[in-house]
Design a binder for these strands. Structure first.
Length: 443
DNA sequence: TCTGGGGTCCTAGGACCC
DNA sequence: TCTGGGGTCCTAGGACCC
């Protein structure tokens, strides 16, 4: 059987770890540009604030002064996630980290009650050690475990945070109560299509003829259907497996028209992507740059384009990737338009241990690799951006807005040996969101 | 005034091959 | 008048996820 551990209101719960005064209040965490709501506390959900709600629309749902709005601090969330996954990894077999706040695993026992007791203790342990509340569901398939974990989270009668779906009669009852839109893998388009055919519950979907599902939709949808019938056939690609592509992109704090400013951003994104690639010990055979205008501004001409470059030899060198990202950028940049977002993506990744050198390639890859290792080493030893290839102005014109970072007094806390200092300067609002937690000393 | 940032997989259709 | 039948590979775009 499969279990799914799911953190409750994850980003909000992380903020509450560092500021317990937030408990009991409606709290939302905002996306990178303080744009939309990406996490809500139960109190915020009760006020009717939907997921993905643009921040400026919160007032449509409630008095915005009632709601604590916080800029996201993904570095902090990633660290807490890592702690939770470490605990899980040491307690269960076959942990598949599916996202920052979710992981599938194999339940350790054959017996349902034994599993239940074991997992209830695990819920308590994670909460006690990390401070983040979690829920666990378990069932014969991952899709059913997902439904079970939602029930564990939502139903207040489930006090120990664990819910299981194993007996066929129980599964039928729950599937009849589950709206088709709540099924994992059934998004907006499929929901609309299925509703049009009178399929409004997970139960009706599970009992459609398989051949019809396959013919109307795709193998993915058919797999989802089989999962609801208790068959284990979902192919999960956990993030612990190597990425197939990596992307760095941002919405700018405001519309940019100057070529140099957008180019600065591209250089920054390419550098960041190259570093992540090296951290994963992978190389890329293709680099794509894209730019686009502001899709919400109807008063400006909209332009959007992308260009992909193939590398002669797969690489993770910052110099190489920046070079190709800029060649692509120069191919698509047009004067006279406003730009609101841009990004760099690398794809066709492979392990860096097996780079096949191109006969016609004249670049010296050995030297580049040694240089990259040296730079990464210096940056790791000192602070993140001591050595950079391209000069970057202190204040980047494209920096996203992040005006709602938790105040320093609320974030600087000693936490099991680490000090988080997410807002280095007390007076000015530092918009850089790349601060890493520094380990100053053990406590 | 203000609308995120990553990822994955699948399918259809065209180019090309024998 | 009559105009094959498979294959494979690649790409763009759609749909989904958190």
């Amino acid at each position: 059987m499969y279990g799914l551990i799911d953190c409750n209101n994850f980003f909000v719960s992380c903020e509450r770890v560092f500021n317990p005064a937030l408990n009991g209040h409606p709290v939302v965490v905002l996306s990178n540009n303080d744009g939309c709501v990406i996490a809500r506390s139960n109190e915020a959900k009760a006020l009717g604030i939907p997921m993905g709600c643009p921040a400026f629309q919160i007032k449509d749902h409630t008095d915005p002064r009632q709601v604590v709005q916080l800029s996201a601090r993904h570095i902090v969330y990633a660290d807490l996630s890592h702690r939770i996954m470490s605990i899980m990894g040491s307690e269960v077999e076959g942990l598949e980290v599916y996202s920052v706040d979710e992981a599938f695993f194999r339940t350790p026992y054959d017996d349902v009650d034994q599993n239940h007791q074991f997992l209830a203790r695990l819920v308590t342990k994670v909460h006690r050690c990390v401070g983040v509340p979690v829920s666990i569901g378990f069932a014969p398939s991952r899709s059913l475990a997902k439904i079970a974990s939602h029930i564990a989270k939502k139903d207040p009668r489930i006090t120990d945070g664990v819910y299981w779906l194993v007996r066929p009669e129980a599964i039928d009852i729950i599937l009849r109560r589950t709206p088709i839109a709540d099924v994992w893998g059934i998004g907006r388009r499929l929901t609309a299509s299925l509703l049009g055919k009178g399929i409004d519950t997970a139960y009706k979907f599970a009992h459609m003829p398989s051949g019809m599902v396959r013919a109307l939709y795709s193998v993915t949808v058919e797999r989802t259907q089989r999962e609801l019938r208790g068959e284990d056939c979902q192919v999960v690609n956990p993030v612990t497996i190597a990425h197939r592509s990596l992307m760095t992109s941002r919405t700018f704090g405001h519309v940019l028209t100057d070529r140099c400013q957008v180019q600065d951003a591209i250089v920054h994104f390419a550098q960041a992507t190259a570093k992540r690639l090296r951290d994963e010990h992978q190389v890329a055979a293709a680099v794509m740059t894209y730019v686009r205008g502001d899709r919400f501004r109807e008063d400006l001409p909209y332009y959007s384009n992308s260009c992909e470059m193939r590398l002669r030899t797969p690489s993770s060198s910052t110099m190489t990737l920046v070079h190709y990202a800029l060649v692509a950028f120069n191919a698509i940049f047009r004067d006279g338009f406003g730009y609101r977002k841009a990004g760099v993506m690398v794809s066709e990744l492979s392990p860096d241990s097996s780079v096949q050198l191109n006969v016609w390639d004249t670049e010296d890859h050995g030297k580049q690799r040694a240089l990259m290792q040296a730079i990464d080493g210096i940056n790791q030893r000192y602070s993140a951006h001591v050595v950079q290839l391209a000069p970057e102005a202190g204040e980047q014109s494209w920096s996203p807005n992040q005006s709602r970072l938790a105040p320093r007094s609320k974030t600087l806390r000693i936490y099991t040996g680490q000090i988080y200092d997410t807002d280095a300067s007390e007076d000015c609002c530092d918009t850089s969101n790349d601060k890493t937690p520094h380990t100053h000393h053990s406590v």
